[in-house]
Design a protein around this nucleic acid. Structure first.
Lengths: 239, 239
DNA sequence: TGTACATCAGTGAACGCGCGTTCACTGATGTAC
DNA sequence: TGTACATCAGTGAACGCGCGTTCACTGATGTAC
């Protein structure tokens, strides 16, 4: 029977969710390596061995949390991007950058889980690759739109690309933004590393004593990097 | 007696070093949170309680390692900087950047310990602040020298600084580079975050699938950021 | 130079803890006829 | 609609592990006179 079958299945899906939620709560409270199956089970009023009906091991639970974290920040970034008019290129850059930072500040341990030091003894399986690429893909799409836009004049100037780097850029562009010149794409990659570097420094305490609190510095850097990647200023005069 | 007194003290200093070395070895092999007093003692052929004559707790040993790591990368960066003629501004920028990366690649777990996610339940004590600032100080000194140099024309253009950010920049400059304009200093801070962001991404696996191996991308980004902070090109014609 | 005492390094046993994982089991839910 | 069987979720006990830290102790090293 369909309905009754779904009853059991629905219970399973719900509990799986609850386990992940409780695990996320502990992650937020204690950090990744303090996360223990036993504590999760305890909090859920189950016996620890029961969790093995849902996750074959602690590492699998961790993997699920990592994937969820990537999906969460990816969805947030995509939504922020989509909320702007596609032609508002600089606005999209800002929106994406702010979305990353806000997500990081509201989910510091999940951020640390995916962008901080790798959990020792744990190596991320293949399944995390696609979710992990949502943010960079959003940036490459923006790069592509900017390149295609007449209002924008991304600079292809700058240090020359070595053959190796040019080939790497070519390979990335081929999949997501055919025709996007390597010198432009590499500028976005630099912007991408700057964005996450800045947020990691803020979150991990390396800005204390200089530009902390970092709100203004962040906004300032975002504008700088928007210039750097060649996005047009705020009120472009449409030709 | 002086000589005999030093005998005991020398033994103590030596063992303290050996403990740290063994701890570092385990750090390199297993990562920070796998580091255990018992394992260190075991490896050293001591009983675990003996370590308490040298470090009052596990956290103190961790602190010692963190300080050593900061001192190690700081010394490396300062040496690389000092090895260039002071007037070779871009060469110094390159040397500093490369020194950071090389240190990170040869000491990945120590890098993760200080620049990765904070160890949960452990908060870095005040004593780490000074060692931690050696790298940023090297950069600010370079900024100061570049600002003072006639061959260099650091740009004060760019997005305006908010009053808060201007004040923060002013405070940093006051201590290390009086007179250095905020817009210039903030460019260096952006460069600093980009540098570490790029290295963290490389080390933590986020460049896989795009610009990994990252050697060429790294060199390219270093040149870009040298331009960004306004360092003169390689063969400056002395005025 | 020799003795009496104080300091210190290292021992070994113990405390109390929490962890991941396995396994045989019970009882409820679902399926086939 | 009712019964016989199969599947599945959750239990409870247990295994084996390693950890940080404390404490009373022994014996060696250092100090004062």
């Amino acid at each position: 029977m369909n309905a009754s079958r779904t009853a059991r299945e629905r219970a399973r899906a719900e509990l799986t969710q609850e386990i992940k939620e409780e695990a996320r709560r502990q992650l937020a409270a204690e950090g990744a390596q303090r996360l223990s199956l036993r504590a999760v089970a305890r909090e859920l009023g189950m016996v620890s061995s029961a969790l093995y009906r849902y996750f074959p091991s602690r590492d699998d639970l961790l993997t699920a949390l990592i994937i969820d974290a990537y999906e969460s920040i990816g969805a947030r970034v995509e939504a922020a991007d989509a909320a702007r008019p596609p032609a508002d290129l600089r606005g999209r850059w800002r929106a994406i950058s702010q979305a990353v930072r806000e997500w990081a500040l509201t989910h510091p341990h999940e951020y640390a889980l995916v962008y901080g030091s790798p959990v020792p003894g744990y190596s991320a399986p293949q399944e995390t690759v696609v979710p992990a690429s949502r943010v960079p893909i959003a940036l490459v799409k923006l790069a592509r739109d900017a390149w295609a836009s007449p209002t924008s004049a991304p600079s292809t100037e700058g240090p020359p690309l070595s053959p190796t780097l040019a080939a790497q850029a070519e390979q990335v562009a081929a999949a997501l933004a055919p025709g996007l010149p390597g010198p432009v794409l590499t500028r976005y990659i630099i912007g991408w590393t700057q964005l996450f570097g800045m947020i990691s420094f803020e979150l991990f305490g390396h800005l204390v004593g200089s530009v902390d609190p970092a709100d203004d510095f962040f906004a300032h850097a975002v504008e700088h990097m928007a210039d750097f990647v060649g996005l047009p200023a705020d009120t472009p005069s449409p030709s």
